[in-house]
């Protein structure tokens, strides 16, 4: 009887061990966006995206500080991005937080096409989104690849008519993530 109990304790302890593998954090997070307007193409990227994925309930949170975006066509454009459009001082991060809809086996390597459902907050405006992405489970590593678009109108980002030909209403976003166990 005692032996069985000890075995039981060991099982629980092993679950405890497994649960320490429950959390994955972003070790490498790249975001790139493109605004393809009739008169101007604007691109910028940040490699400062961070986030956590909780394997047991497939919940996640990812966020990127807006001030870390670089690229653009001029330094002034970057200043305008932060000052006039995204108001980065007021709304420092863009956050996507939610759950993966599909069940995935995070213990065996493989690639899955899944959907992440949750709230996407940008410029202080929260939108419910379902974002398709490709999740590759590897040895002690998970990579996520996705692209989606963001409508400026959805997030209350106003473009003055003088520059309407230079800024796209729909911004395409590419994300590449690498997650490792915490």
């Amino acid at each position: 009887m005692k032996k069985i109990l000890i075995l039981f304790v060991l099982i629980i302890l092993s679950i405890k061990y497994a649960s320490s593998q429950d959390l994955y954090i972003v070790s490498n997070g790249d975001v790139h966006f493109t605004s393809d307007a009739p008169l101007e193409l604007i691109e910028a990227e940040s490699n400062k995206l961070n986030g956590i994925l909780k394997v047991s309930d497939r919940s996640f949170v990812f966020r990127v500080p807006m001030k870390t975006f670089e690229g653009f066509n001029s330094a002034l454009q970057q200043t305008h991005f932060n000052e006039n459009y995204l108001e980065s001082a007021k709304y420092p991060h863009t956050i996507f937080e939610g759950k993966i809809i599909e069940e995935i086996d995070f213990n065996t390597p493989g690639t899955h096409n899944v959907r992440g459902k949750g709230s996407f907050t940008c410029h202080g405006v929260k939108q419910q989104r379902i974002i398709r992405c490709r999740v590759s489970v590897g040895q002690n590593k998970i990579t996520v690849k996705t692209d989606f678009s963001v409508l400026l109108e959805d997030h209350n980002i106003k473009i003055p008519s003088v520059v309407s030909q230079k800024i796209a209403e729909e911004i395409t976003v590419d994300v590449n993530l690498e997650l490792v166990p915490k």
Partner: peptide
């Protein structure tokens, strides 16, 4: 998770 993120990766 968000507050956990704050504690792991502070700005």
């Amino acid at each position: 998770l968000l507050s956990m993120l704050d504690s792991i990766q502070s700005t």
